[in-house]
Design a protein around this nucleic acid. Structure first.
Ligand SMILES: [Mn+2]
Ligand SMILES: [Mn+2]
Ligand SMILES: [Mn+2]
Ligand SMILES: [Mn+2]
Lengths: 227, 227
DNA sequence: TAAAATTTTTAGGCAAAACTAAATAATTTT
DNA sequence: AAAATTATTTAGTTTTGCCTAAAAATTTTA
């Protein structure tokens, strides 16, 4: 229906709309997609022609409902394939993204639905990112960063906002993954770095790191708190 | 490494080289790929440039060792994905080809090898076509057509050379699939159509049909013959 | 608010991969 | 062996998606 390139633009616009308040600019897009601004302008005109985006010259772009639903369909496929690669094919979570970037463009309604079913309709991908359902609806979840908590809190890792291979490998090294329990031992005042306990080890996390780790309060510790 | 279009040309040349004695002509390729002869000529020049084919103007084309090994890699992926779709995702054998045409172009050594392993290193795809191993070697097997046999022979279906959806659905209707037992009851002299028994039903197969069904002698009936 | 800096768009090209129409080579017929 | 037919290649376009350089609009700064 749409070309790979068009789909990549839709996805990029979706992600940038999510992560920033204002509209999406040509330069942000060109950075995200590793292309020149002139190429972006051209593509935006084509996408506007096809009613996938609202584009006003010089004032950025936003997705139409049609564009958004198409973007969510791509993201759904991307995350389902990532889940498949990790759960079925022994991929590590830091090596799935590239392949999923290719697989997300495969066109087949039946393929996606059967894959979803085969995998047991997962709600989150290996990085903790939510998987939209067939209707494009994301599962409910709250995003709080490890950096927002204080000494004594015990938390469960639920996602990571920097998906770079180096960050994921760093997490692996320190045995931090999805659903890992982390408790905060101390916080350095001058740079907000945290000393946390993971399993039996204590490790130091910079603020950059703690801002990129999404967590949920541990139920057990919640009970303790109330008690 | 190579574009989807280039890969489709390599695959088409491979298949045409297999199925015909002489070299592969521009017109055969244009027919196979549903494009115009002029487009084929252009592409052949590009592929020759890249040392994937031997191309002599006006005299057709053949694959170089490099081209052949690339073609086999694509075919390997195509057939592994078809196997996956049928075995894991509830696809029927007549609906896998289109999707496999897309999946075969996904680039990832690890993906193919892990998929192969996950599926249990199958030797034949859902249509009975042989799956090359990682080194590009095809499993041993002998191709004999149902049309070559005579009254009284009992055979096991091992493959089908016409992969059209309509033929596969015809086979489904008559409960003929991979490893189905078929015994020849009678053969009409004037058109060579066969009356065969499949399960408890007797059905009539035209010569066109029997020529497109690959079979193996049934071991049991072999023993009977000798006895 | 006018000048400077930055961002975005336009204009003009390029490469891949397709097409049509015309030219040319190969093959078949007479 | 020449003519007719068929197959193949060449030439010239088109579309997609990218590029650089130049022009224009917006935003920032003074
Ligand atoms: Mn990813
Ligand atoms: Mn992910
Ligand atoms: Mn197939
Ligand atoms: Mn097949």
């Amino acid at each position: 229906m749409y070309s790979q390139s068009e789909e990549n633009y839709l996805k990029a616009i979706y992600h940038l709309e999510e992560s920033s308040e204002k509209g999406v600019s040509t330069s942000k897009l060109s950075e995200e997609l590793q292309t020149k601004a002139a190429s972006v302008t051209e593509m935006l005109k084509r996408l506007a022609e096809k009613k996938l985006v609202n584009y006003r010259k010089y004032y950025g772009v936003s997705l139409t409902p049609e564009g958004k639903s198409w973007a969510l369909a791509i993201i759904r496929k991307h995350r389902l394939w990532e889940y498949f690669l990790v759960e079925c094919l022994n991929f590590n979570w830091d090596e799935v993204h590239e392949v999923a970037e290719q697989l997300e463009h495969i066109q087949s309604k039946k393929l996606v639905e059967e894959l979803d079913c085969f995998l047991g309709r997962p709600s989150f991908d290996p990085h903790g990112d939510p998987i939209p359902n067939a209707a494009g609806v994301l599962p409910e979840f709250k995003k709080r960063r490890l950096s927002e908590f204080k000494v004594g809190d015990t938390l469960i890792c639920k996602g990571f906002s920097d998906a770079s291979s180096s960050f994921l490998q760093f997490l692996d090294q320190h045995k931090i993954g999805l659903n890992t329990l982390v408790s905060i031992k101390s916080i350095q005042e001058f740079d907000e770095s945290m000393l946390v306990k993971v399993g039996n080890n204590e490790i130091m996390l910079s603020k950059t790191a703690t801002q990129n780790i999404f967590v949920e309060r541990n139920k057990e510790s919640k009970i303790k708190e109330r008690a």
